[in-house]
């Protein structure tokens, strides 16, 4: 009788602890999964609200000044090291002749403000000697900020 009671007690304990372990293991899985889905949804929501426009591009001999405007409803980080700038030098037929790429924070490349609030304007200055005057009729500039918000503009160098 004693052994039956002990056996039943141990059996119930094993059953309860295995159910608890099973639940805790799967809750770990789902919490990791849910946090990943949440991060993805937050990013998608951010990108749907974000908007960036290159308003003007000033091309000088030794520098390019890109003016950006936040046309969305969320702030955009432009001062991050991961703000990527692609400068495509195009000929008269708009064919690519040369490509230069930079990022904010590298030598000679700086943003006037680290964060661009909605409606605000800021500049990215690229102080580089690019030798673009002779072969490039147009410059196509792509700015892609760290979160993936981008702006494109083409200007004539004439």
């Amino acid at each position: 009788m004693v052994s039956t009671a002990i056996g039943l007690a141990i059996g119930s304990l094993i059953l309860i602890s295995s159910i608890l372990l099973f639940v805790s293991l799967w809750s770990t899985y789902f919490s990791t999964y849910i946090s990943a889905v949440k991060a993805y949804a937050e990013k998608a929501s951010y990108l749907s609200k974000a908007g960036l426009k290159i308003t003007t591009i000033l091309v000088k001999k030794r520098q390019i000044v890109i003016t950006l405007k936040n046309t969305g409803s969320v702030p955009i980080r432009i001062g991050s090291n991961y703000t990527f700038i692609l400068v495509k030098c195009l000929n008269e037929n708009r064919q690519v002749v040369k490509v230069f790429h930079f990022h904010v924070g590298m030598k000679g490349v700086a943003a006037s403000s680290p964060i661009l609030d909605p409606g605000e304007k800021a500049h990215i200055v690229v102080k580089k000697r690019l030798n673009i005057a002779q072969s490039c009729s147009y410059l196509e500039i792509i700015v892609e900020c760290s979160e993936g918000v981008r702006a494109v503009k083409t200007v004539s160098t004439q």
């Binding site: 946090s35 990943a36 993805y40 993936g148 981008r150």
Partner: peptide, 14 residues
């Protein structure tokens, strides 16, 4: 692995 799969996103710049 599932979290990595969901969290992977690549944007084509140019």
């Amino acid at each position: 692995s599932a979290a990595k799969y969901i969290g992977t996103s690549i944007s084509f710049v140019d």
